[in-house]
Design a binder for these strands. Sequence first.
RNA 1: UCCUGAAUAGCUCAGCCGGUUAGAGCAUCUGACUGUUAAUCAGAGGGUCGUUGGUUCGAGCCCAACUUCGGGAGCCA
Length: 478
Amino acid sequence: MGPLQIKELLQQTPDAKSVTLKGWVRTKRESKNAIFIALNDGSTIHNIQAVAAPGQFSAELLLTVTTGSCLKITGQLVESQGSGQAVEVKIEDLHVYGTADPEAYPLQPKRHSLEFLREIAHLRPRTNTFGAILRIRHSLAFAVHQYFNEKRFFYLHTPIITASDAEGAGEMFRVTTLDLDKLPRTEEGAINFKEDFFGREANLTVSGQLEGELGAMALSKIYTFGPTFRAENSNTTRHLAEFWMIEPEMAFFELEDNMDLAEDFVKYVIRYALENCKDDLAFLENRLSEEDKNKPQNERSIPLLEKLSFVVDNPFERLTYTEAIDILLKSKPHKEKKFQYPVGWGIDLSSEHERYLVEKHFKKPVILTNYPREIKSFYMKLDDDGKTVRAMDVLFPGIGEIIGGSQREDNYEKLLERVHEVGIDPETIWWYLDTRKFGTAPHSGFGLGFERLVLFVTGMSNIRDVIPFPRYPKSAEF
RNA sequence: UCCUGAAUAGCUCAGCCGGUUAGAGCAUCUGACUGUUAAUCAGAGGGUCGUUGGUUCGAGCCCAACUUCGGGAGCCA
């Protein structure tokens, strides 16, 4: 099963047993009586210190041990003579797997900007910051599956390629095998997609929800967790063209059950990270507070662990859209005309409004419900007043909307009416409408953008830094 | 896509009112020192200033376009 990793070795008792280390050099320090090599293999944020005696190895060999080079070291695990670490490895044999020319290797032992690291996304996982982020990302993904498994949800694999263009969740990436230089035409001159691979137009999915509902109407509780694609020309710190989405869908869940699940779920995965990623979170918290030292007092943020614990330990604030509008109308920024966009019943809340509610008024996560039907999707269940729908958005400080969900319209006639209203051809989603024809049931679900969750938990500020290889307009290098 | 700011050494930045040979810190290399902790001290090498065009006797600095990046907004998860 491979050699012991540094994470395990650091926990062992230093009894001079022979061990093998494999990893990448972070720093090398040479002194009169000893040569110190800090080695990291990504299993933990911590490095292990390996020590050689001067003259033990040739100068030529030592010259190739530079930051970024990869080594295999065998030696004895002993108690460290220096302070700063409990154990270290007394080197007996040293082999260089791969060198890293210090003049050419871009990661040197100094602080680099996140913007620069984005340009070298193939190497940035080797930094402390990205190592921590990627390990936390893994733990959160694992917690997602563990949570749903414990709650008896089934993991449903919804298609990545879809022929449905009715979801209305955004611009789509086209999938085709047609020769772009020689497009087949119909007699009318339009592109003839009958000759395309699927015999029709196809795209990358923008959401697995509609297929998720099909699963819920058979298995009762399902969730999806997969990549999602939006061809929007969005250039922000919160959007990606390719991102991972978690979408549970539950039969016999009403809006309140949906909210309970969303809150419980988010708290569970954050708690999992708090319990299982202590070292990485502590590193990121420290990194953030170092950054904060350069900021004026009033712009400093609360420490990361404190922020996460607060979210886990306190109930989310729940209120209706109508109540939220009332709060905004009575708010100071509205009275002083500080809002850029006008406030009034019927508006789609802009991020300044959401930020006011979450960050200024309630100072905690907020769940907004019962939005006007006009600003929400066709599949959301109409309230009895006919004006609002059973929608819910979970808003997080600094992130904005992290979850969007609703109770779904389960009445065939009402759903069909909405389909016509928003201009969807019912023929294209006949299979979706069939669920309301055959054994319809009240059901609910929501979607959570995984990267936004990772953004919140790591305290990072740009979504491009919480996915290994971000995809966004004009960027698909790696 | 819109608004706004930026682009100078490997990285992070400074560069005065347009004027001789473009500076610093970190990194790298060399030396000294040291059971060191992203060590410390000294020295060295390294850039034609994003691209194109323009204004000018003269442009890193002024103007225009383009490209890329940051921040904000919209769309959303």
